[in-house]
Design a protein around this nucleic acid. Sequence first.
RNA 1: GCGAGAGUGGCGGAACUGGCAGACGCGCUGGACUUAGGAUCCAGUGGAGCAAUCCGUAGGGGUUCAACUCCCCUCUCUCGCACCA
Length: 846
Amino acid sequence: MRERYDFNEIELKWQTFWAERGLNKTDTDPSREKFYCLEMFPYPSGKIHMGHVRNYAIGDVIARYKRMRGFNVLHPMGWDAFGMPAENAAIKHGLHPAQWTYENIDFMKKQLDRMGLSYDWDREVTTCSPAYYRWNQWFFLKLLEKDLAYRKSSFVNWCPSCATVLANEQVVDGGCWRCDAPVIQKELEQWFLRITRYAEELLQGCDGLTGWPERVVAMQKNWIGRSEGAEVDFPVEGTGERIRIFTTRPDTLFGVSFVCLAPTHPLAEGLVADKEELERIKAKYGKEEEKEGLFTGHYAVNPLNGERVPVCIANFVLMEYGTGAIMSVPAHDQRDFEFAKKYNLPVKVVIIPGKGGEREGQALESAYEGEGTLVHSGHFSGLESGEAKQRIIRRIEDSGLGKRVINYKLRDWGISRQRYWGTPIPVLYCERCGIVPVPERDLPVVLPEDVHFTGKGGSPLHESEKFLRAVCPSCGGAARRETDTMDTFVDSSWYFIRYCSRKDEDALDRKNISYWMPVDQYIGGIEHAVLHLLYSRFFTRVLRDLGITGQGEPFRNLLTQGMVCKETWRCPEHEWLFPEQVEDGKCALCGKVAEKGRVEKMSKSKKNVIDPDALLQRYGADILRLFSLFAAPPERDLEWSDKGVEGAYRFLNRVWGIVYRYRDEVRKAGGEGEGDLPPLSDQAARLLRKTHQTIRKVTEDVEREYHFNTAIASLMELVNELSAYAPQGAEDTAVLRLSLKNVLLMLAPFAPHLGEELWEALGEQGSIFGFPWPVWDEALAREEEVELVVQVNGKLRAKLMVPAGLPDEEARKRAIEDPKIAEIVDGKQVKKVVVVQGRLVNVVVG
RNA sequence: GCGAGAGUGGCGGAACUGGCAGACGCGCUGGACUUAGGAUCCAGUGGAGCAAUCCGUAGGGGUUCAACUCCCCUCUCUCGCACCA
């Protein structure tokens, strides 16, 4: 054993050891309790970044810990390998996307192994391989059969620069999320998945997500956006048309003073004579700055009270939500109020807040949007909003004017992408038979190789004759193959199910899936809080309905890790600076005073990134892992600190040093004999107690929300005590041995290589991860003496050492008799004495 | 605007069901060992004060013997959603 801790040597040694013995491999074993630990798989962009390091360090500690706790742990990893960067690289560098992707995977896999992560690579998933995406295609066929996949023409967000369709959520501030180019609207035939059919179930399921962060659940609910209300038809005078509106406030129906249509509403063209004006409003559609509209010249009839109200077109009415038309109640809706003010439309109060309180129309400065008591509402006047809603809806339904309706913000999932590097949608277009699904036996539909990547025009798939030309399976005639590929969110919506079986096993092996699913702990970034998680929940439900999974909820517990941040530097002239461009607080380029910016998420653009590779070279995996777990609890943001890494380094060095110093004695100390230790020296008794206390503390911290930072802190405390320990006799050494072994067992999930190496150095046989997590003995953890805090009127006045478990009465007596306390209390009347067992006595005097 | 979260030493962060505020680490100060120290080890380290003591968890109220913790109000910051009828 070397005197100095040399991570290079030992990390490689143990990585080889684990790989050669297959220690990270897992098998389905119904006789054992399983634990499925999953981290979000990365996009193979080239190399790992600090966010990955943190994510995977957290996951690996959990996996290793659970293994030591006796669980049969599934801990897989793979690659979210389809996507635009590969294609962009192909355009730029002429590399085939597959080559670029697989080379990246090779490199990144080495990086992950270098971190000492305990993955079972036999289950590795690579979504761009035909063996994987054939199942995307298979699911698609099943969805088609169940009418859960359909084609429709719609306006889509189109990025002219990437030449592709974007999902709503891929549009950021009107620009493409990847390249920032302005997004335009384009009409295309698209494939959609009917996720809305599961809207209610997905919403209901949210309440069962007790292992998820509240805010993620809130985001899911918000996204689904359920609202209850009614649809009501307003006949348009003299046309025979009806305008169907959606409202959540049927209680305000008597307050309607006009009706608004979205500029793209199907009736709009017919009602508006001035087409130019309509175009002008269309151009302002969805723009938030100002409400714009026009009067169509037509009137509609409020079916509830027969009132005649003007029909308007308004830019703020969205075609995508509800019916694309609204009833406007300016007194009770702020948007309608603003619109009414601008165009001088009447405001009619029909709800009075709470108990009375006069509010009259003309004096209003804003709408009252709350509930209250109905007025000016015919025979519904005097009712409370809640009651009125029910009664009015019933009336509307009874008279056939409309119906109760539940609306969702959630839209069907458009999965078509006009790109090459994705799963081909397995459909053919036959001149005679129309849309024909590719038969299952012909799967997978493989991406062709004979294409070029120019970045111009549409999908490169258009130019592959071999790909395009197909034979219709139903009539045998000529057919054209679909050239759209699937959104990559399809790939990631079920990869956790693929992991349940090894690469050489059936992808949908029911036995494996029912054993491993659901994922017990999922760990990843908050950026996937809505879509990836929602799509996975949807997909898992569909698979359940296909009989593949037992239940619809894929992730029992979710941990959203915080971001990795670092301070930034700015120069007034040169913008963001790399840390090495700052010398003595000045910009190295121009000498101007550099400004220390805020601590921000690491990003290339802000020049505050740290490359994990450099850290691995300099400090090794264990130190890198340890620091990223110690600096903050996993769910919070972590501020990177070079100095802090040094601290982790010093700590592991200290552990190494202690084992090095005592290795011979400890080896000789032999067997445990814990039960029959002879009377111990004071320091040995203290160390034994501290050891058991630390086992308790570390175990509780890990079990409680994975608070590794405090767990590591208590290990540091124990190691500090070990540093000061000077064993004298055999008993002292026996306790030292016990304590050291426990330190290593608890440290191993965090610093696995060091754990193994020192375990071996102490003379133990086999991998440390084959040994169980230590258990504490409550009796041995108990303090014999405790410090009793004595307060007078809540202020700290004295501290006494007393035997643990001292009866309250005795504690009270000792506190009052303490000379210092006696002096303070002297001459005053003791009103009350509060005793908190083993902690504190508070003497209350008057 | 709505929703979620945060605010504690010079810094990252502890304090679990109300019970010694500041564990642990970084930094800093002093010392030891050293040719040397940006290595290592030891000691100290919330602020004010010679001291007894006083003041301290964004700010202001309250409940309590006792409040970082519970209640009310206000401020600041972060994230998400946002003309969703």
